[in-house]
Design a protein around this nucleic acid. Sequence first.
DNA 1: CGAAAGAGCCC
DNA 2: GTACGGGCTCTTTCGT
Length: 542
Amino acid sequence: MIGYLGDKQFSSRDELVRYMREQLLGKRKVAVDAETHNLQYTQPVGIGIAASGEEAFYFTIEPELEDEIPWKVLIDPGVLKVFHNALFDLNTLIDFHIDDTNIVDTSTICRLLCQPAKLTEAVGRFLPGMEVHDMSEYISGSQTTMELPLEVLSRKCCQDVMATYALHEVLGELVDQQYLAVEMDIIPILIGMSRRGIGIDHEERVRLEGKYETDKVYYGGLCKEYGFNPGSSQQVGYILAKRNNLLPMRRVINKRTGKREVKISTRAENMVVLEDPLAQAVLGYRKASKILSTYLRPMEIHDRAYCRWHTEARTGRITSTRRNLQNIPPEVRSMYIPDNEHFTDWDATQIELRCLAYISGDEEMQEVFDSGGDIHQDTADFMGIERRIAKNVGFAMIYGATAKTIMETAGIQSRGMAEQLRDMWFDRYKMAGLWIVTTQEEGLRNGMVRTLYGRTLKLPSLEEEREDGIRRKAVNYIIQGSAAEIIKRVMVKCSQLPVVLQVHDELIADGDAAEGVRKLDLDHIAPFHIPFKIRLMERWEV
DNA sequence: CGAAAGAGCCC
DNA sequence: GTACGGGCTCTTTCGT
């Protein structure tokens, strides 16, 4: 079936096909949207194509695929294909071998412009008068698009592509084209990673499950003897309080009931210091059950590990979802195995502090990095403290931590001591310190900051967040966002390698890619030096 | 049943 | 009297 939305009338299908041929073939740019069975990724049921903001065509996808026109257009690298959320559409259309080199994505453009990325919202803002609808207006919950009358789906899809086309006309030129190109190059890479997945050694998985199951049963049994569920922080809090353990209390207003409540915090950081063996049992239980329920059990039903990659993090970071593979604890990494004997791992060493050194223009810090020194050791030597603590202070600076949190995370006795450490850090790295302060002020004034490559990151407003929170974000967004965009450029440069995983400052490829990585000269990808540490391993190691 | 809260895993 | 940036997922709890 072919659908049409526009102001033409056709007396026959042949006439429509003829017209469509005229309108679509030979165009340099079209907007595309795929409709799927449901809101999860599945098979596409139809695609919409528009070569203008005024009319669009809809093709149902049938087994015979008799209509060759959409595919002729979509496989052509000479045609710019505009999507709104290309990551989704290209993934659903993967079996049709759509060209993915000449694409652009209006949702990414919206995000780069700090505008709402949802199609209905973006259209509402930039194309008032254009009609688009959210799928939720048509279907709810478990319903599928299949249950919609064809005409309704066709009309909706046509409206979406027309809007996407128009949105690109309006916004396309407003963003930095080079920056946009990197974002677009990332999309096929992420799809490739999503589809490739990672091998699982199920024998190893079973071994690990046995180990943590034993722990869980043991600690769980201990708690059961005392009649409470260690999985319930509420029960844990009451029991431990009754046994005279000192834990922090929080007075909080329950959002649902509006009543004031006192809550006992049973977080691990609060409980490790307790003498009570029951507290330690709870911690043992939590550790084991976390690893079982989040990292081991869910893999039982899967041959390989797959996740979906996204680019919507506020700082421009890439994230992994639907079985997050970016937070696998070292304890269970051994169950991930390569398809080709090895994994090759390369990571950008201390990329965030290097960003800070470069962006702030801090010469002391740059000097340490340029001479191949160890920044944390340098800090430690200057301050006369352990490296571990110096490292903590360094991170605290990037995160904008207060003296109190430095004290807690670095395990320092007094608050005064933590303040002293922070002051010494400012003294050692004067420019960086100055930059942090001025960045906070500018962030507060402008409501946004800019990264290394010029991406604008919006900060929360004073209505949404306290001033000190905004100050911290101003600094951190620049550092984290800049590191993220460097890594994205690295990924694009590594696009010929079989990369299976990205963990923020680290990439992992299947097989021995060490030589391939070395050849790419990644150390000079940014305007400053970033050494990449390359490792070859037989399974995912720590 | 779903949302919120609390916890804990990663960089 | 004062919460460290960005993520994701799991379990419990509680109101509907």
